[in-house]
Design a protein around this nucleic acid. Structure first.
Lengths: 197, 197, 197, 197
DNA sequence: CCGTAAGCGAGACGGTACGTCCGGTCTTTAG
DNA sequence: CTAAAGACCGGACGTACCGTCTCGCTTACGG
C-alpha cells in the first residue's frame, strides 16, 4: 500500500524535469545562489511552481539535483596512472585549481557548498552521490601508489585525501589565499612527505 | 563637511547595540541561520528595524558582529607552550574538536561560515578580525617549535596551519566523518611528520 | 458525423453522475458554497476531475443540477385547494417560511441563489426548470381563486406572485428581518387586499 | 491597553485607501466581480497586497467599502414631496428602474448583492450603512403620505417598502422579467391599493 | 538652559517570494 | 471509448520579510 499523498513517479514529465534543472543551473550562474527564487526557476523553465514543489522539498534540493544531472554520465571516472604518483596527483590537483578559477564553475559550486553546509540531509546526499564516486577514483590511484611503495602501506587513504584536498578547498571557500599551481604542488609534496613509507 | 546621510556614531545607543547582538546570537542558536530574520532580531531586541539598518548593511554583518563582540576580550590569546610541540598541538586540536561538538557553538559558527562563503566582504572582515589573531597565536607556537627544532626551519607556517586545521574544519562543515580526539591526534601527527626537520 | 470533442451521452456513467451530484449537495451543506471546489467534489465523489468537466461547464452548473436532481420526482406538483384562497396561501407561505428556517435547506438554496444572480445562463435555466413548474402550480391555485371571485378578474397573476413572494425572499436573502408565520400571514393579507375584486 | 495585533489607524495612509477603493470600483465595472482579485486591485492601486489585508478582512469588504465611499456625501437624502404620494413614488421607482438599466451601475451593485447574500456580517453592515439611510428617507415620505390620508394610518411602513421594492429588486436580481416604467407604475399602484386607508 | 537635531521604538508602506490551493487541460492505465 | 487517477501550466491566495519611510518621543549638544 503506497502513501497516496506521494506523487507517482511513473507519471513524471521528463521534459519538465530537464527544463527545471537546466533553468536552475542557468540562473545560478547568472545571478548567484541567493538571488535565485523558486518562482524564477519555474518561470524560466516554463513550468508551474507546483511541479517543482511536487518533486523537490527545497530550493537546495533542486540545485543539488541540477548538479547531479551534470555528472550523470561520468560513472567510470578514472585518474591518470603514469606510475609516478606525485606527478599524477599534481596533474589532478592543478586541474582542480583551474576549475575553481573558472567563474562559470565557481558560482554554482559555491552555491552547492552553502546548501550542503546548512542542510544535513543534502550533505549526506552530496557525499553519496557526488563526493564518494570521485573519492573512490582518487583512492584507487592512491592504492595503486601504495602498492608501488610510493605511500606508506598503513596510510589511511581517507585521511590522505583530506590532507591533500581540504586545505585547497578551504582556501577557495574562505578566499583566504591565492589558488596557484605552486600551491597545488606544495600540497601534493607535503602530503606525500607526511605519508611516505 | 560630513555626509548628512551617515549616522553619527557618537549618538549611538550602546543599549540597543548590545540588545541587537545578543538577540542575533540567541536566535541563531534557537532557529538556525536561515530562519532568523532582521524583523525577528529587532522584535527580540525590542528595537526598531531602522536601528539595525542604520548601523549594519546586512543580516550577515549583524551576525558577524555578534561574534566579534563575543571574542572582544580575548585580545592577548596565547597557546600553551610546554616545550613539547606535539603535545601542545594535540591539546589545542582536541579543544577545537570539543567546541565543534557543543551544539550551542555549532549553530552560530556554522551560520557564520555560510555567510562568509557567500560574501567576499564579510570573508575579508572575518580573516582580519577573527581568524588572523587566532592564527597568529598558533603561528607563534609553531615558530617556537621551529626554533626548538621540532619543525623544519623552512616550513611555511601558513601551510602548516592549513594542513593541520583544514581537514578538521572540512569534516565538520560537510559532516563527512566523526570528529574524535583520535582524529585530532592523527592530524597533529600527520602534520608534524610532513614538516619534520 | 458526430463532433469528436463532444462526449457521447450514451456512454455516460450513471453511477458517477449521481455520486457527483450527491457530493456537491453534501459539500455545500457542510462548507457553504464559496468553500466548495470542483476538486473537492471530485474527491468526495471518487471521480476524476475530467469526468466533471466533461459533463458540466461550471461549478454553478453542477450545483444547479444537484438541485434539479432533487426535484425530479415532483413533476405533478399541486397546491391545496380548500376553496378558501387566503387559508390555502397562508398554508403554503408558512411552509416556505419553515423551509427557509431549516439550516439543511438554507445553505444549498442560498448557494444556488448566488450562482443564479451572477450567471444569466444559469438564471434562465433556473426559471425554466425549477421556478416555472412551481410558479405554474401556484398560478393554477390563484386562477381557481380568481374564478371563485376571491381575486380581481384582471389581476396579473405573475405580479400577484411577485408581490406575495418577493418580500419574503428578499428578507431571507438579505437577512433583513425575521421570517415568522405572522409575517407570512401579513403578506398574504396584503396581497389579497391589493388584488381584491 | 490596545491589542498589539491590530494596526494603528492613526498611521493609515489616506492616499492608499483611496487608491484601493477606486481601483476596486474600476475593476468591478470592467471585469465583473468574480474576475477581480485582491492582487489585481493592489496592482491597479499601486499598493502592496499587505496594505489591503491590513485594513480589510476580505475581498467583499473592500468592495463594500468602495460603495460606502461613493455614498459618503449623500447624508441628507430626501425624496420629492409634491403632496401626491402616488406620483412621487412613481418618480422614485422609475429612477430605480433606470439605475438598474445602466450597465455602469449594474455590475457593481450586482457584485455587492452577491457578497451580501453570502456573508452575514457584510449584510448587517450593508443594512446599517447603506440601506437604512435610504429606507428612512423613503419611510419619511410614506409617513407624510400617511398623515395626508393617502395611506392607512396603521400601515407597517417597513412592510410597505418591502411590497413596493422587493418585486422590483427580485426581477432585477434573477432577471426574471423586464424592468419597465409600466412595471414600476404597476408596483406603486398595487402597493397603494394594498395599504389604502 | 533651552532649542534643535539626532537617534530611537514603532510600524505602515510598496514590493518580492513564499508554499498552498484550485482551475481547467492533458496523458496514462484499467476496464 | 469512458472513467479514475493525477501530473501539468497557470495564477490567486494569504503570509512573512525585505528595505524605506514617516511618526512622536527621548536625549544630549551647542549657541
Amino acid at each position: 500500500m503506497t502513501d497516496p499523498r506521494k506523487p507517482n513517479p511513473a507519471r513524471r514529465s521528463e521534459r519538465s524535469r530537464r527544463a527545471i534543472l537546466d533553468a536552475a543551473r542557468e540562473l545560478i550562474s547568472e545571478l548567484g545562489y541567493a538571488k535565485v527564487s523558486i518562482e524564477s526557476i519555474a518561470a524560466r523553465a516554463g513550468v508551474g511552481k507546483q511541479t517543482i514543489y511536487r518533486w523537490w522539498p527545497s530550493k537546495g534540493a533542486v540545485i543539488f539535483d541540477s548538479f547531479l544531472a551534470l555528472s550523470e554520465g561520468e560513472e567510470g571516472m578514472r585518474l591518470p596512472d603514469t606510475g609516478d604518483l606525485e606527478a599524477d596527483l599534481k596533474t589532478v590537483m592543478r586541474a582542480t585549481v583551474a576549475e575553481f578559477a573558472d567563474p562559470a564553475f565557481e558560482a554554482p559550486i559555491r552555491a552547492l557548498n552553502m546548501e550542503i553546509i546548512g542542510d544535513p540531509d543534502l550533505a549526506a546526499l552530496y557525499r553519496d552521490k557526488l563526493a564518494r564516486p570521485v573519492d573512490e577514483a582518487k583512492k584507487a590511484r592512491l592504492r595503486s601508489g601504495q602498492q608501488a611503495g610510493q605511500l606508506a602501506a598503513d596510510a589511511d587513504l581517507d585521511l590522505v585525501l583530506e590532507v591533500l584536498y581540504a586545505p585547497l578547498h578551504q582556501r577557495w571557500l574562505h578566499r583566504s589565499g591565492p589558488l596557484t599551481q605552486e600551491y597545488a604542488d606544495a600540497l601534493v609534496e607535503t602530503t606525500l612527505r607526511a605519508f611516505s613509507p
